[in-house]
Amino acid sequence: MDTRTVLAAVLGVGLGLLLLLAPGSVLTVQTAGRLPPDRSGEYGTDGDGSATIRRLVRAVGVALVAGGLYFGWQLLSA
């Protein structure tokens, strides 16, 4: 079994789920240090980004889960 394909399947699904379940946290990680943390939220909180950006992050999450499942399916059918 190809280790890299296993990793692609497992890590892809894992990261995809993270993006789906916690888009705001992923945005915080991406924007910290690039944009001031207070910029988009209320004072003293992390901004979670606009609804559009959160949808975009979730869409990337779906793509990652789909990619991971594809490589998983490839492994099982090999």
Partner: peptide, 21 residues
């Protein structure tokens, strides 16, 4: 933009705490 920003929003679990600035 504000609708998604509430302090007491959906992400108040462990992940939110871990990745909060």
């Amino acid at each position: 933009q504000v609708s998604a920003l509430c302090i007491f929003g959906e992400e108040r679990g462990l992940l939110a705490k871990l990745f909060a600035s």
